[in-house]
Nucleic acid binder design. Structure first.
Lengths: 148, 148
DNA sequence: TTTAAATTGTTTGTATACATATAATTGAAT
DNA sequence: ATTCAATTATATGTATACAAACAATTTAAA
């Protein structure tokens, strides 16, 4: 009666290993390990790198906008920029038009480090997707975008 | 020359929104929101629920094994069980054969709560996958398992 | 058996992640 | 122009997540 592919076992049991949340979490864990290993030299976390990449795109960004661009909470982005600023990789100037805002930019060191980090980041994406065929990669990305 | 589907932009620029790590992170964020909303009444986080589901499967488990079963660090599982134990949802007895170990079991309250949480968890999986067709769901799960 | 190696659990420190609350400031509505 | 609402950044508290170091104990090896 019950099929082999049931996600809930014969007694309606919950099978953690079959749940999509668990699978996403584990895939993410693997990606995080790959990321940390590859970025060991430049010493950037995924979110630190994302923030720097976004500042580069925008040239000058307020902290909140930065968060929205990188899909981060205002409270979370606050800590990320704080740590990057402590390392003098980014710096903030006051916004003359809006005294609430900090406008973040890359420092010279930040630009230099990001230049080193960018090809590493591309390699990380490649390594993460390595177990998949080209068509699987495309389907995977398409599916993830639907889940956003 | 450069194709529309390039992940790196015309100047070799890094496009955060196209990177698989970013997409996985955002999909996970959405799942987390769905989880928290659905589990609001029983008040269990994803990891708290996973730990309880695994204890139910095993009847009695040591803390470290619990972590391995739920793909958690020993240091992380420590905090999760601590918080569940504080709520008297789980309890530990010493292992007579190995004095290093705690054997965790569900309490009466824990069993009762888990019984309420299990159908909610299934609903969470369903809601998370809702934007996908049946075949997309299967492909997605298969792909995630490859990335594990 | 005694020493060495591995396992179990704890602790500390760093980094997200997000809810909630707050102060400062800006923009909109009247 | 004044009040009200929205926005920006900060601060606090809880919950993962994992590296690194550690004490207690068990297992394996010599």
């Amino acid at each position: 009666m019950s099929k082999k592919s049931n996600k809930t076992g014969k007694d309606g049991d919950y099978m953690l290993e079959q749940q999509i949340g668990h699978l996403m979490r584990k895939a993410n864990q693997r990606h995080t390990v790959i990321f940390a290993a590859a970025m060991k030299e430049v010493d950037l976390t995924p979110m630190q790198f994302a923030v720097m990449a976004k500042i580069k795109d925008e040239e000058e960004v307020s902290q909140n906008l930065l968060g929205r661009l990188a899909s981060m909470d205002p409270a979370t982005v606050q800590g990320v920029v704080k740590r990057l600023a402590e390392r003098d990789l980014i710096a903030a100037k006051p916004d003359v038009n809006d005294r609430r805002r900090h406008l973040w930019t890359l420092s010279k060191d930040g630009e230099k480090l990001l230049k080193k980090a960018l090809p590493v980041a591309k390699q990380i994406t490649e390594s993460t997707l390595e177990p998949l065929s080209q068509s699987e990669r495309q389907a995977f990305a398409r599916t993830l975008k639907k889940l956003t």
